[in-house]
């Protein structure tokens, strides 16, 4: 059933390809992301609830990889991602729910999160500004738009634009986002799920119907299960690196994240913290010979 006319392929063909932009729950990485309606409105009910949208993540064949390896990997990743999400969800972590799985076609359907990425909200983006090409200006917005970055997220009121641009960690709004990040990651780690790709693009601020504001962790494409302190520490190290590469001078933000993480993590924090120090050091010493 790998033909191009398989049901799932037809579904993709009728969906909207999301190239990039803050609306894409996951910026175009190495899979294709579509926005679709999985269940069409019924004949007697034409309501268009935004909840009906799903995000289809399509891991298309990678021609560079050996086909056997590619097939196994694709299936394993769809399966792994679905499992990790369910595991997180059971542990109360905010994640988009799974809506459809077709492992053999490499497609995973997820609840559409109508929010903004933390990367976007922190104004991180334009990497190597003078040399980027136009397809990457994902997170660049006009100033007027930026004015309201957090307006919809009753996290803070006031001059959010100036606060965010200054990225002052003492600011309430930013502080609250960082706390939420730390808390969600800790809940996830307590469930022994390692995200594997903790970047600010993979965190979304979103408010579901009940009006509160949630921080949702997304893109569990590289997630796996582990009880090892080492893996949790490396997960945090990846996060630190992601912060420093997309949001220059963000050490104080990371500190806030880790503080909230520590609070939720409880007594396991001590060993993770110690290992994180090791990993930081090891990362600096790693290679020896040119």
């Amino acid at each position: 059933m790998q033909t191009s006319s398989s049901s799932t392929q037809l579904l993709l063909a009728s969906s909207t390809l999301i190239s990039q932009g803050a609306e894409a729950a996951s910026p175009l990485r190495i899979s294709k992301v579509f926005k679709a309606r999985l269940h069409p409105a019924s004949r007697n009910d034409a309501k268009n609830s935004p909840d009906e949208f799903v995000l289809l993540k399509y891991r298309f064949n990678k021609q560079y990889r050996h086909p056997t390896l590619d097939g196994t990997l694709t299936k394993a990743r769809v399966t792994g991602e679905a499992r990790a999400i369910v595991k997180c969800q059971r542990a109360g972590v905010n994640v988009p729910s799974v809506r459809m799985v077709d492992a053999s076609e490499g497609v995973l359907g997820l609840h559409w999160i109508d929010g903004k990425s933390v990367r976007f909200l922190l104004g991180g983006g334009a990497e190597g500004e003078e040399e980027v090409d136009e397809s990457t200006v994902e997170d660049v917005v006009d100033e007027e738009e930026e004015e309201d970055l957090l307006a919809g997220y009753d996290i803070s009121k006031g001059t959010i634009y100036t606060r965010l641009v200054g990225r002052d960690a003492s600011d309430e709004a930013v502080e609250e986002i960082m706390q939420k990040i730390g808390t969600e990651i800790a809940k996830m780690h307590r469930a022994d799920v390692i995200h594997g790709d903790l970047t600010t693009s993979n965190m979304m601020l979103y408010h579901p119907r009940s009006g509160r504001t949630d921080l949702v962790l997304i893109d569990f494409g590289l997630a796996y299960t582990s009880t090892l302190v080492e893996d949790k520490a490396v997960d945090l190290y990846v996060l630190e690196r992601a912060f420093s590469s997309t949001h220059p001078a963000s050490e104080d933000l990371v500190t806030l994240v880790l503080k909230a993480y520590e609070k939720t993590m409880g007594k396991e924090w001590k060993s993770i913290s110690r290992r994180l120090d090791d990993v930081r050091l090891r990362g600096r010493k790693r290679s020896m010979v040119g």
Binding site: L28, I30, K62, Y64, R65, H66, L69, E127, V132, D133
Partner: peptide, 22 residues
């Protein structure tokens, strides 16, 4: 070779997607 190189190409691809270089 197939496994290790596939990994290297994958992380390179991720970086390319991340910064938008071709």
């Amino acid at each position: 070779q197939e496994t290790v190189f596939a990994m290297l190409v994958e992380i390179t691809e991720r970086a390319m997607a991340h910064i938008g270089s071709k």
